[in-house]
Design a protein around this nucleic acid. Structure first.
Lengths: 192, 192
DNA sequence: ACGGAAATGGGGTGTGCCCCCATTTATGGC
DNA sequence: GCCATAAATGGGGGCACACCCCATTTCCGT
């Protein structure tokens, strides 16, 4: 990626800033035209800088997503493996809940467009060491992957986005400890 | 609800039928205008019969949603309590996965508009007896509610809608049996 | 068969996404 | 400092869609 011209750089920053407040007020479905106007640029300029809404959303949340990812190493240093993982998952959940609609972009890119940044990948990578540690401490089942746990958190976030009445943290707790006592776990899996 | 005039009844049915095929082809975000055209009615007519997209979606899926709900009693009769519940949850999941976007309307109505039908309520009601049976057989934790389990299924469906790469049935299995062995379940809950 | 109420749909309005292209602006070599 | 050139810009147009107004048509009880 070449260096942007100075004015282009300035436009880009103003767009991201306007988008940040618009997303906070109206969720990630806020009107791109309105964002462009708030930023004092034409809509064409916005579309040249960000070819899709998703690109803009990821630019806006890139910093805070990385901060949450970084939190993983802090928790890993301060707590035993199991709680470190669980508390980090809670933190991820709270982060997505605090930003209406964010969860919809914390999902792998549909086509393998490896050009761009993807928040989902950043979080998966952060989850990996926590999960490995929790597994070798015997606190988490061996067959669970980082993508699995993030997918569950993300699924719950998506639900909470649509259903404000849902108690997302409670659901996360259920998903972690399981609805069924382990006694009957083996009974599942015989397909009907 | 008064009886509709015969022509109104016909219009309504043609709209629902057109919507059904449109939803199957393009998901529940299909263009309402296109549905109206396919049905051979003006868009105003569609909007008079269905004041929101959600109303139309629920009209289209009402029958099949009720069929899935009815499946619960069949399973309850044929299988022991635990498997009956789990297999029914799998059935609900498969049903929502088979109808792209359906999950977004299987969520409680935002405001307490108790006029209309709500698929979520129908399924919750169906889950209740299965859950009670599974609990008294000691196969499911006592503190779990019907809304809890449906919420988890729904959350996973929402994720799978956005991320075709997600293995929804696997995630449901994880949520049921839990990511963590029960040994460390109690460690959760000490807030950071 | 007729009169009024119910139902209809063409078309208008508003909103938003996305892009074209004539014009403006920054920049690096001179 | 100046200028040539490529980068960047944004007003405005095309398009798609949701939603609604209201003049007209259609049904149905009498």
């Amino acid at each position: 990626m070449k260096t942007l011209r100075a004015d282009a750089q300035r436009s880009r920053e103003r767009i991201v800033q306007a988008a940040e407040t618009a997303f906070r007020r109206h969720g990630v479905e806020a009107s791109l035209e309105a964002i462009a106007k708030d930023a004092g640029v034409g809509s064409a300029t916005l579309h040249r800088h960000f070819r899709s809404r998703r690109e803009l959303v990821e630019a806006v949340f890139r910093g805070s997503t990385n901060a949450v990812a970084a939190e993983a190493t802090r928790l890993a240093a301060e707590q035993p493996p199991g709680p470190a993982l669980f508390h980090w998952l809670q933190a991820v959940l709270r982060y997505t809940l605090a930003n209406r609609g964010l969860a919809t972009t914390l999902v792998p890119l549909p086509d393998e467009n490896h050009e761009g940044y993807c928040g989902h990948d950043a979080l998966s990578a952060a989850a990996e060491p926590l999960l490995v540690a929790a597994k070798s401490a015997g606190q988490v089942r061996a067959d669970v992957t980082a993508v699995d746990v993030l997918s569950l958190v993300n699924a719950i976030s998506l639900l909470a986005d649509r259903d404000p009445g849902a108690d997302a943290e409670r659901l996360l707790g259920l998903a972690i400890t399981g609805i069924a006592p382990s006694a009957c776990a083996e009974q599942l899996g015989r397909a009907p």
